[in-house]
Design a protein around this nucleic acid. Structure first.
Length: 466
RNA sequence: GCUCCCAUCGUCUAGAGGCCCAGGACAUAGCCCUCUCAAGGCUAGUACGCGGGUUCGAAUCCCGCUGGGAGCGCCA
């Protein structure tokens, strides 16, 4: 039997980290077993679904590289099929029309709550012989009254529910449109889903879905209910904590595979390993190893992992990402060698590609921004002579690359009887605008002789009170 | 309220009865390296929620408590 998993988000909110992680688990499980991964948009709530949310799901999945083998399917395009199944169940007696009004149901609920009971539908219309003509009706599923349903959950183990705790849920609203719990059942059956991997907020829905599946003569799939992700403060993930669109992480300069690596380690582990490639994950991931407890989102660790992945990537692989971030800063470069060099020089001092771009402005701009504090400290009249000598040595250099530059600067420092820092810092400020940059030899090599000398001249002028 | 789920350092986790007076990672602090900043290396502190059992022996099994979470919609 080939494994078929699905990711079935509802476009009523923007796709966030919690959704991405369940998508990742589903995708990994399918890939691990050479199965199929399906994307299905659960948009039966036409009131709250938005086009933007659909777009974020589609763009987000693409950015992350979580490719689907089928879909995206939209439930709103399957209404015909749902109607057909409802009619069949009505005919078979596994569903019935309920004529209770909303008001009646509300009253019933209020009374039950008043008696400190679990609110549930009494089943009043369950055995109604004749239809109530002219009255509005919904269609309810006839849930078994006795016995138990056991969810053999892949992460929780067996979970037992009593059928008497379950009431007859509504499959079709009075306007005829199908409801979520019913659509899921039909879709999972039609799409031959073998493993349903979803948030554990759905665990309580599962027994009723299994009952419906059985009423339709279908064998329930395997279920895996994965824990939720909490905000950094341990509270439920919400807009305030980090339930932001997944695309926000692209903007912030995270590598998609770093984000996935971070997410997979929330609730799952493989010994002491922290950094994984997607290929490694596919090879070792098992949904059965996922933890039962919820876990909190830790932005620092995401940052660390992102840098780890930047440091392990092929520089050329990061160039498009860096270029995109530079573009956001209004900078551009088609100098592939320079871009790769900057990646190499900066990736161990940036947590994100956005940070890398910000730290690298001076490589791509005509006029640098001078940090006043650094200038005050290093571009002083006292430094002018040394800077001038530095300029002369650099101008005289035969080959403009890191090693000779380094040799020249070291030689000069030795001659002057000072540490390299004494030479490097004023030079650095003059050439980059700040007291922080990659190693001075690497920085100058990347910058090129021309720009280096020009900026040095400007720096010297400033030292002399310009 | 009822039903279901969960519980190891601040955080993510290892741990499937003796290998654990609990290991790794992020973060924090100190040191080393060093042209700045990083990266890297080394060191340090911090955890099995509580109470009962079972057992020669429990972080690991059982029960209770406490604390968190979810569901109980003509929402998904």
């Amino acid at each position: 039997m080939t494994v078929v998993t699905r990711f079935a988000p509802s476009p009523t909110g923007l796709l966030h980290l919690g959704g991405v992680r369940t998508a990742l688990f589903s995708w990994l499980y399918a890939r691990r077993h050479g199965g199929r991964f399906i994307l299905r948009i659960e948009d039966t709530d036409r009131e709250r679904s938005t086009d933007e949310a659909v777009r974020v799901i589609l763009d987000g999945m693409q950015w992350l590289g979580l490719d689907a083998d089928a879909g995206p399917y939209f439930q709103t395009q399957r209404f015909e099929r749902y109607r057909e199944v409802i009619a069949a169940m009505l005919a078979a007696g596994s569903a019935y029309r309920c004529y209770c009004t909303k008001q009646e149901l509300e009253d019933e609920r209020a009374q039950q709550l008043g008696r400190k009971e679990k609110p549930r539908y009494s089943g009043l219309c369950r055995n109604r012989a004749e239809p109530r003509v002219g009255a509005e009706s919904v269609v309810r599923f006839k849930n078994p009254l006795e016995g138990t349903v056991v969810v053999e959950d892949l992460v929780h183990g067996p979970v037992v529910f009593e059928n008497r705790e379950l009431d007859d849920l509504i499959m079709a609203r009075s306007d005829g449109t199908p409801t979520y719990n019913f659509c899921v059942v039909v879709d999972d059956m039609d799409m031959a889903i073998t493993h349903v991997i979803r948030g554990d907020d759905h665990l309580n829905n599962t027994p009723r879905q299994m009952n419906m599946l059985r009423a339709l003569g279908a064998a329930p799939p395997a279920y895996a209910h994965v824990p939720m992700i909490l905000g950094a403060d341990g509270a439920k993930l919400s807009k305030r904590h980090g339930a932001v669109s997944v695309l926000q992480y692209e903007e912030e300069g995270f590598l998609p595979w770093a984000l996935l690596n971070y997410l997979v380690r929330l609730g799952w582990s493989h010994g002491d390993q922290e950094v994984f490639t997607l290929q490694e994950l596919i090879a070792v991931f098992d949904i059965r190893d996922v933890n039962k407890a919820a876990s909190a989102f830790n932005p620092e660790k995401l940052l660390w992992l992102n840098q780890q992945h930047m440091m392990r990537a092929q520089p050329a692989e990061l160039v498009p990402y860096l270029r995109a971030q530079l573009k956001r800063l209004g900078l551009d470069s088609d100098n592939e060698a320079l871009l790769e060099g900057v990646v190499l020089a900066q990736r161990e001092r940036a947590k994100t590609l956005k940070g890398m771009a910000q730290n690298s402005r001076f490589f791509f701009t005509g006029d640098i921004e001078l940090d006043p504090k650094a200038a005050r400290k290093h571009l002083t009249a006292a430094e002018a002579p040394a800077l001038q000598e530095t300029r002369a040595r650099l101008a005289a250099l035969g080959e403009w690359s890191a090693a000779p530059i380094n040799d020249a600067l070291n030689a000069l420092a030795a001659e002057l009887g000072v540490g390299l820092g004494k030479i490097a810092q004023p030079l650095r400020v003059a050439v980059t605008g700040s007291a922080v940059s990659p190693p001075i030899d690497v920085t100058l090599a990347l910058l090129g002789r021309e720009r280096t000398l020009a900026r040095l001249d400007a720096g010297i002028a400033r030292c002399q009170g310009g």
